[in-house]
């Protein structure tokens, strides 16, 4: 009985349409059990608004494509249940903050991807394919530090949540700096000093205010704030030793 009642309820979904000068358009969508925000967007696109643009790929929280702003907060929409975030049956879905808008819920991620390069993120190994694989002690402090930040899915939720990015577009942002921290702790990386210099360059980790919005919003519960704090400590103590 309860289930039947819930299925007859409707959600009021306000969706951003257009580019920077767009507007919120309201749709009515049936409320169902175990419904995610991505389900809602897909239902609107399939049955009400075929022209609605949005991104997704894996639908299971791996690819990082479907991040949007839901009721004012950046979230991965494929793993965000409606009942967790709706306010009295109302949802407001907008594109991510801090990124140029292309159409509707789709942002241009190029500025975000560029930050990875600016943070000194490309890996360059010290060995060739003819060498034996490097032996990395999983219990070493460097490996444990790298491990803590490795699982980033590049969803840009932290970049969107960061107030410093909104104030200073030159700021590299949490994801790029988190990546730099994992490389600085990777003993196979050939130029950890170069990575650190770039991560501490113009718009680098020194700009972070330690608000912690990145850590609070990271959908897979990484801690970019801790990675950035680690980079700041390197400024005083030098590159981490493999202990």
């Amino acid at each position: 009985m309860n289930k039947i009642k819930r299925e007859t309820q409707e959600l009021t979904v306000r969706v951003w349409r257009g580019k920077e000068d767009g507007k919120l358009v309201t749709y009515q969508v049936m409320s169902r059990e175990n419904q995610t925000i991505l389900d809602i967007i897909t239902e609107i696109q399939r049955f009400q608004e075929p022209g609605l643009a949005y991104r997704f790929a894996c639908r299971v929280g791996v690819c990082g494509s479907c991040a949007m702003t839901v009721n004012g907060r950046p979230r991965w929409t494929c793993r965000t249940h409606v009942k967790k975030v709706s306010h009295e049956g109302v949802l407001t879905i907008e594109p991510l903050r801090n990124l140029p808008r292309i159409k509707d819920l789709v942002c241009d991620l190029a500025p975000f991807i560029d930050t990875w390069q600016r943070a000194g993120a490309p890996f360059s190994g010290t060995k060739t394919r003819n060498d034996a694989p490097a032996l990395v002690d999983p219990e070493s402090s460097t490996r444990r530090a790298a491990e803590a930040g490795l699982q980033c899915i590049n969803c840009a939720v932290c970049y969107s949540a960061c107030d410093v990015v909104s104030w200073n577009r030159n700021y590299i942002g949490p994801a790029g700096l988190n990546r730099a921290w994992t490389l600085i702790n990777d003993i196979r990386h050939s130029d950890r000093k170069q990575t650190f210099d770039q991560a501490f360059g113009d718009g680098g980790c020194g700009s972070c205010h330690s608000h912690g919005n990145c850590t609070r919003h990271c959908p897979i519960e990484l801690n970019p704030s801790e990675s950035i704090a680690g980079l700041k400590r390197v400024a005083f103590k030098g590159l981490p030793k493999d202990v």
């Binding site: 501490f200 360059g201 113009d202 680098g204 020194g206 700041k232 400024a235 005083f236």
Partner: peptide, 11 residues
């Protein structure tokens, strides 16, 4: 320079 300024401000 950013690193130098960061250290100078903290110290």
């Amino acid at each position: 320079m950013e690193r130098t300024l960061f250290l100078a401000q903290r110290i």
